[in-house]
Write a protein that binds this DNA or RNA. Sequence first.
DNA 1: TGTCTTAATAGAAATGATTTCTATTTGCGA
DNA 2: TCGCAAATAGAAATCATTTCTATTAAGACA
Lengths: 143, 143
Amino acid sequence: MPDDFPFILKKLKLKVTPKRVAILDILMKETIYLSPEEIWERMKMRFNKIGLPTVYRNLEELVEGNVIWKISHPNRNLYYFFCRNRSHHHHFICLSCRNVEDINLCRLRELEKLVKEELKGKVVSHILQVNGLCSRCKKNKKG
Amino acid sequence: MPDDFPFILKKLKLKVTPKRVAILDILMKETIYLSPEEIWERMKMRFNKIGLPTVYRNLEELVEGNVIWKISHPNRNLYYFFCRNRSHHHHFICLSCRNVEDINLCRLRELEKLVKEELKGKVVSHILQVNGLCSRCKKNKKG
DNA sequence: TGTCTTAATAGAAATGATTTCTATTTGCGA
DNA sequence: TCGCAAATAGAAATCATTTCTATTAAGACA
């Protein structure tokens, strides 16, 4: 039951509020990454009262719960994206149309090994993201 | 002549101003990554008049010229770091003491190949950064 | 099903890193 | 040395994100 919002929220020990369900619904139905403000705009179509801080707070909680992804854009703004792939992977994001594609190539194990053995350090987190143009946008730029 | 500041600046077609030279000097002598504000503080010890925008502008120009690195910290602030290693590589940054270590393992070629062949896309940029605790800070946490 | 506790929310306001703007200064080519 | 474009100072603006406080509502439990 991948789209059972209440189930997902309960698993994260979060209350099943209409706002949370709607945010999940918006993100799940979307194929591109969205900004908090854009999500807020869509929320305003569904609710009379909806504050931007609520959007921010919930997005962060969902990221924390590994339900959605935070995308670091070169423009320094944050975007959010729902991804069904639950195994460890990374993303190729299109800077033009905002599409996201999975990259299953990750050398985290190697990296952790390297940091552990050579640097004697401890890995807390890592970022690996490839930014570019998807096939369609690549074509359009040329055409 | 890796520490010939005027040479470096001229190569980037930037005028050799005292402020630019000082920023380079500060970063080259430092072993940890610094925030723009911290660099500004140090600049204030050297100059009577020095504006924060000047620091920001110059840091960005130097990043653009591949002379210094921009570090994306999980706290969402930017930091800057000078690295003598001029070949393509990435960094392991210590979240505690701010040390930086080179990671020469990069799978950019594989990634580009993957994006090109499987996704038919074009890579514009990529981020690969490992965040954690260096050996010393790791020990101190335990002790 | 009603009560109660606590999390969640709205809305306004604050925050703070970064950028913009404009007048002034300065590097440096001619 | 001169002159012009680039660089700078300092104040002000920007704007994404967070904080604050009073109000609302989810859901555990009786």
